[in-house]
């Protein structure tokens, strides 16, 4: 990799593996993931529920619960490996350079602390702001995320706010210290469609205004189409496809991605029709098949797929579109 390349990459994750110590032994939930985010870029991370999206992001920041451990890999952020960093240095990054928006707005805010105080928290302890300055900044942030009457909202407890409002508060907290990278873990799944659209618009505006990079985790491909510059598709803890957003939608190369795209609900679809185009279920962690993890569900699986693990390799001439699929590799060679 060239020096130019390294400098462009704000976040560069290589070969990251995460294992869970469970009753049935150790289970690999994230299996050697490679992904990167360049400066100013929005990366969409998609995949079915349970494919390891949240654990990947938590493991980057070393926020995994007790029995879950990173076993391999590195995660360079701004040229420093987050996995090797001292706890003290890591604390500076957390909430400072990397803002995090959590999946569940109902349980991710401290119920006995006013939202204003929670927004002030990173400002007080990272920036060493005075209390008055922090409160002023908190009002600004609430206005930024589109909360009406921010001065009064500062004194509200989380339970006094609606789900959408809480999600906005969480985004405000994530943005408090002008992070270089915002990691948003399905920030809109708990919300209804109108509010979803508002929040997506909001993040787009903020990204343009603040020039930050964004990692947006979702299992909603339709949403990612209008938001991301590049998309990484996860399946059973591995990256199966990584492509610029237009290339992904124009030319999905991994059979799993094709299945996902085919299952995007259109207005006429009944909700039950979702995901109907991919039969079967993902392998449970710890029971993944040898070879390609998607093989049992893959409509075009070949013999080699059940024996060898396909690597994530370029499938376009300029190399920005990559897939981990023998069929896709073969198609490139044939072309």
């Amino acid at each position: 990799m060239t020096a130019q390349n390294t400098r462009e990459r704000l976040l560069d994750v290589k070969g990251l593996s995460v294992e869970i110590d469970g009753r049935g032994g150790r289970a690999v939930v994230v299996d050697g993931i490679d992904l990167h985010v360049t400066r100013g870029e929005t990366l969409g991370v998609v995949g079915e529920s349970g494919c390891g999206k949240s654990l990947t992001m938590l493991s980057l920041m070393r926020l995994l619960p007790n029995k879950i451990k990173v076993t391999k890999g590195s995660a360079d952020f701004d040229g420093q490996d987050l996995q090797k960093m001292s706890a003290r240095a890591l604390r500076k990054v957390r909430g400072g350079d990397i803002g995090f928006v959590f999946q569940d707005p109902m349980t991710s805010l401290n119920p006995v602390m006013k939202v204003g105080d929670q927004i002030c928290e990173p400002l007080l302890y990272h920036r060493g702001m005075s209390r008055q300055d922090a409160r002023k900044r908190a009002v600004e942030l609430l206005r930024l995320v589109g909360i009406p009457g921010p001065e009064e909202r500062l004194n509200a407890y989380p339970h006094e706010l609606s789900g959408g409002m809480r999600q906005r508060v969480m985004i405000a907290i994530g943005l408090a210290c002008d992070p270089k990278l915002l990691i948003a873990d399905e920030p809109t799944t708990a919300l209804d469609v109108t509010i979803q659209a508002q929040i997506v618009d909001l993040v787009k505006q903020l990204r343009a205004k603040l020039g930050m990079s964004v990692v947006w985790i979702t299992h909603d491909l339709a949403l990612i189409a209008g938001l991301a510059d590049r998309v990484v598709v996860l399946y059973a803890g591995t990256v199966v496809e990584d492509a610029p957003v237009d290339a992904l939608f124009a030319n999905p190369s991994h059979p799993y991605t094709r299945g996902l795209l085919a299952s995007i609900p259109t207005l006429s679809d009944a909700p039950a029709a979702r995901l109907s185009s991919i039969g079967g279920t993902p392998p449970e962690p710890g029971r993944r098949p040898p070879g390609c993890p998607f093989a049992p569900r893959c409509p075009v699986a070949m013999d080699i797929c059940r024996k060898e693990v396909p690597k994530l390799e370029p499938i376009s001439s300029e190399g920005s579109h990559r897939a981990a699929c023998f069929a896709a590799h073969k198609a490139l060679k044939a072309a």
């Binding site: 920041m61 604390r91 805010l109 602390m113 302890y125």
Partner: peptide
Amino acid sequence: RSRPYITAAMALGLSNRIIMMRYVVPN
């Protein structure tokens, strides 16, 4: 200890002492 808001507080880079005093104890 396993509530999401504790993880969220850790993701803000708050120290263990502050998390203890302002998140765990009051709850």
